[in-house]
Design a binder for these strands. Structure first.
Lengths: 137, 137
DNA sequence: ACTAATACCTAGTAAGATACTAGGTATTAA
DNA sequence: TTAATACCTAGTATCTTACTAGGTATTAGT
């Protein structure tokens, strides 16, 4: 039960963008330096973030990335889902909490896992990039 | 962000024991059949559960396992910790929530992860085997 | 127009975790 | 004595994670 590095890297990187929200784009090289994360690895993560529409890019010199929305309007859930795909706490649960278990239909564990799922997702959805960023100062 | 099979198998297996709490021991073969989990695999999990003192065993014919406490007094946290070791939501957090991050000391992500950790752990500690078991009926 | 800096793309790969298996020994009830 | 059980050590195949390599496309500044 742990968040992957992809998720934490993604969060940290977008927190950097949030810090400069409204100004010029921030390049991967700079983020990489600031956060001490491999640039090549960040690239992979940013592909997902871009595809999910959370960030936009400008190519060329003095190019880089910017958030498409204000930090208040981007939730941690958005970011983790973009980077990681849908999160489920066990195989026998779908992302919306539906139980898709075959064997042991009389299993009390699954509803419990669904509970956990809901609790965590709620927290993720109620935390914005702004919240993350204002923590740091 | 997902529980391992070890955890869910452990929970399901102990839920079986909880169901028969106070009666005769239940053997791995039976649990394996009931829950459709490989017996050999369950063996591995039960080694950890035994070492952590959640269950006791009786060898020989008509032997098997029993809980050492009532289902009300065994929490999901106990079980997952036994099976999985200490749970932390990210590398930079210790099990008690302390931040052990080296780089990026000004990182707002870590306190957030600590929050998640606390929320999940609280839920795990507030849910007993009895709660799991009564769900199933 | 040229150059350097950037995003963007595809394909890897090493190490570790996960899930599971094999083949035994020790103990005990019937 | 036997069969059923727990208990133990050592594997191993597959998947995931984290990360790297080597390119092409685009653009700002000169």
């Amino acid at each position: 039960m742990r968040f992957s590095k992809n998720s934490t890297y993604g969060l940290r990187a977008l927190a950097c963008l949030a810090k400069r929200s409204g100004t010029t784009p921030l390049s991967l090289s700079e983020i990489s330096k600031q956060e001490n994360i491999s640039k090549k690895y960040l690239e992979q993560i940013f592909i997902h973030l871009k595809r999910s529409g959370l960030i936009k890019a400008r190519k060329g010199q003095s190019g880089g990335y910017q958030l498409t929305r204000s930090p208040q309007k981007i939730t941690v859930f958005d970011i983790i889902e973009a980077v990681e795909g849908r999160m489920t706490p066990a195989e026998c649960l779908s992302a919306d909490g539906t139980i898709i278990c075959k064997n042991s239909s009389e299993c009390g564990v699954v509803p419990f896992l669904a509970d956990i799922q809901e609790i965590v997702v709620t927290k993720l959805k109620n935390t914005s990039l702004y919240d993350i960023e204002k923590n740091h100062t």
